[in-house]
Amino acid sequence: MKHFTYALALATAVVAPQVTAQGKSAADGIAEYRKMLEDGNPAELFEARGEALWKQRRGPKNASLEQCDLGKGPGVVKGAFVELPRWFPDTQRVQDLESRLLTCIETLQGIQAADIAKTPFGRDEQRNMEGLVAFISTESRGMRFNLPQGHLEERAMYELGKRAFFYRGGSHDFSCASCHSEEGKRIRLQDLPVLTTNPGDGVGFAAWPAYRVSSGELWGMQRRLNDCYRQQRFPFPGYGSDVTVALGVYMGVNAKGAESIAPAIKR
């Protein structure tokens, strides 16, 4: 695995200067790179692990997650990802994939959700979350985002997500919109997706979870948002907290019709 990561890192190093020299944008370079790796995205290793975890009996209740309801009925995985976050009557909350998984893990397997939420990314139970989100998003790969907005709370969370998206604060007065509300902008050489509208197939919301070549990790949307807030110089958003779910609703509804390529591959 480690060897594989090195090989990938090397591939990036070789590819990147060439595309710059040819005057292509970073997005073109990444698209080309993604094409090269189509048959070998390391996310597949996480997917396989996630599928095994889904079926494995675990926790104090020694149960699998196969009866987990991701919004389309117990055990239905296909197509669930492109309709999340959504309203769940049993928890009386709008939940994204990861906060919903916490509910399933706690109710079905008896593992405490709060403990998982407190675990640092990339460790212990959070590593299991990486596999699970890879597996579940893979089952919707190629499908188009279509988040439900029928429930009053789903619409309220959209409005709250919009407010959160434009909320300026922290030491630098940044908001999500500082970087993601205008076409054709970039930070250094990194192209920035516009997230206030549909940015297109496999871009922005439709590209996460993703395997990150630079760190050899698989990041779910929770970790992606967490690192956005770190760079925004905000305090720490709780794992599965309402602000992260609301942002998911805002970006997901805006991305209606965009094709999901998750788990994608990122630099």
């Binding site: 709250l160 959160a164 720490f236 907290s241």
Partner: peptide, 9 residues
């Protein structure tokens, strides 16, 4: 929501 979602780090 903002008050409940964030903590010191």
């Amino acid at each position: 929501m903002m008050k409940d979602s964030f903590r010191d780090q």
